[in-house]
């Protein structure tokens, strides 16, 4: 029994190491100068940790010809993130409420269509979507990429909120209707205050999802609005001459940091969001 217990912890610690090593390596390397990286081991602790590489990554790392650092991508991601998250969560909440509480005719058909739609790979839709957005003048623009994030977020957001509102007793809506409240009043005064937890879950899911997106940003945002992930890949995978590993890893960390912070700040909600988003109803 005792030996089994020790084996159990040994296995778990080994697993913990497997999961943490990539992050540790990236953190340690980002704190070293290049000379130390060339001569030393990747697992060695930095001799004199400093943030020079971080500063360079932020201020002056090169993406192709421009050398303005990854901060450009950071602010692009930020400008994409805020309206996309706000609008897609609001749309999901309203859709879920309308579907689950008011049950209009065809609600189930729409729900099934959305669920199946969520499984269609982006690659199937990308090209025609580019055509549509070009035709209405939104291709390669900030509103364009925001619209795309809202559209692709619709299925999961709608499903999460529908499942939540379907779990509320029907009588709540009935009581409010007898009290004379209408669609919007019931939503804002009764349903929304009830939805704080599920709103947090949805916001976290969208914040991490949209921040981490690469493909949509690459195709729809255009060069001027390229999000941080796109810029990061440009910095690391297309740079000329000798690779500055410490700068690359610092840039990687800077890109990973916002969702990591969200994760560490909100563990429980994050897991709920990930499983809800994954299992999709």
């Amino acid at each position: 029994m005792k030996a089994a217990r020790i084996g159990l912890y040994a296995f778990l610690l080994g697993a913990a190491l497997f999961f943490s090593i990539p992050l540790l390596i990236v953190v340690m390397t980002s704190l070293k100068p290049m000379t130390e990286i060339r001569t030393g081991s990747i697992f060695a602790l930095p001799l004199a940790p400093n943030f020079d590489a971080w500063v360079k990554a932020w201020m002056s790392a090169c993406t192709g010809l421009a050398c303005e650092g990854i901060r450009v991508g950071f602010w692009n991601s930020f400008r994409i993130l805020v309206p996309s998250v706000a609008l897609s969560v609001m749309a999901g909440a309203l859709n879920g409420y309308a579907l689950a509480q008011w049950k209009p005719p065809g609600a189930n058909a729409l729900l099934t269509a959305l669920m199946l739609g969520a499984f269609i790979p982006y690659q199937v839709i990308l090209y025609p979507m580019v055509k549509i957005l070009s035709n209405i003048g939104l291709y390669n623009s900030l509103p364009g990429i925001i619209a795309v994030h809202i559209i692709f977020g619709l299925p999961v957001m709608t499903l999460i909120f529908r499942n939540f509102y379907a779990g509320l007793p029907d009588e709540l809506l009935k009581a409010a209707r007898v009290d004379g409240a209408g669609f919007w009043r019931i939503f804002f005064e009764i349903m929304l205050p009830l939805s704080i937890n599920i709103l947090i879950v949805a916001v976290i899911l969208q914040v991490t999802g949209i921040w981490n997106d690469y493909l949509l940003g690459l195709i729809f945002a255009g060069r001027d609005n390229a999000p941080m992930t796109v810029q990061l890949n440009l910095i690391v995978n297309t740079s000329m001459g000798e690779q500055e590993h410490n700068v690359n890893m610092a840039a990687t960390l800077l890109t990973a940091l916002p969702p990591l912070l969200v994760y560490f700040a909100s563990g429980r909600y994050f897991v709920r969001g990930i499983t809800a988003g994954a299992v999709k109803g």
């Binding site: 778990l12 697993a15 913990a16 999961f19 943490s20 090593i21 990539p22 992050l23 390596i25 990236v26 390397t29 990286i37 990747i42 991490t208 921040w211 981490n212 997106d213 690469y214 992930t229 990061l232 890949n233 690391v236 590993h245 690359n248 890893m249 990687t252 890109t255 990973a256 969702p259 990591l260 969200v262 994760y263 560490f264 563990g267 994050f270 897991v271 990930i274």
Partner: peptide, 28 residues
Amino acid sequence: FRTVMLYPLSMSFIVTGLAWQWVLSPSI
């Protein structure tokens, strides 16, 4: 343990790919 095992999920595939590219890189 849960925290350590779940944090990769919060990272983008781009970041994941780059980190593993370095771990598995023959030169470093």
